[in-house]
């Protein structure tokens, strides 16, 4: 029984047809790598799956909840290209705010996530003073705390060093081993055992 279902999904931007009639199903524990050349609509697909954009046709469902329902939205964690942090707040303040917006495990401390991502010593540092990779790690800390079942990660490995990439891959693997589903876009070859969705 498929848990995540994409049916006849199409998306057009301006005069440009990005993809048409995509059908795809993913079960629990599936790691899906969305592949395609630049401009093929990888980001647009993840934005549609997250509920940020409307598709031109088709529908998405997770355990029979359609993408515009509250149940679906509670199960989504979307980390896009944007840093989603304010440079005028400290690392811990940004993470706490992201937590209040998303469905996270309240038993876990934010500091625990920062430790895991190697930012424990920077918790009270303003994000203005962080490098691009460290800023990326702030939002990726959400992967430790999130309780959402579907992760939608747009280029999660951008700006990360090789150890950072390994760490994110292990977090994705841990999430999916526990029954989650993860869609991510990346041009890099991943060491994960992935199912491919080619656009």
């Amino acid at each position: 029984m498929p848990v995540f279902e994409i049916k006849d999904l199409s998306c057009q931007k301006g005069f440009n047809l990005l993809f048409k009639d995509i059908n795809f199903t993913a079960k629990e524990s599936d790691i899906v790598q969305v592949k395609g050349a630049n401009g093929k609509g990888k980001t647009s697909l993840l934005r549609i799956l997250s509920g940020l954009s409307e598709p031109d046709s088709g529908q998405i469902s997770f355990n029979d909840s359609l993408s515009d329902s509250d149940e679906y939205q509670k199960d989504i964690l979307y980390l896009g290209h944007n840093p989603s942090i304010s440079v005028d707040l400290t690392v811990i303040e940004n993470l706490e705010y992201l937590r209040s917006l998303n469905n996270t495990d309240l038993n876990l401390q934010s500091l625990h996530a920062l430790k895991k991502l190697g930012l424990a010593n920077f918790q009270n540092e303003f994000c203005l003073n962080l490098s691009a990779g460290q800023k990326r790690r702030v939002i990726l800390s959400m992967l430790v705390l999130s309780k959402s079942k579907i992760w939608l990660l747009d280029e999660p490995f951008t700006a990360l060093d090789s150890l950072g990439i390994e760490l994110i891959e292990s977090l994705i693997k841990h999430h999916c081993d526990n029954g989650g589903v993860c869609f991510f876009t990346s041009h890099q070859t991943s060491s994960l055992n992935v199912k491919e969705l080619v656009l």
Partner: peptide, 17 residues
């Protein structure tokens, strides 16, 4: 303006709040 540029509004829009 700033929350639009840095992506916080996206997070707000897809949150269940």
């Amino acid at each position: 303006h700033y929350d639009f540029d840095n992506g916080i509004l996206e997070q707000l829009s897809i949150s269940h709040h």
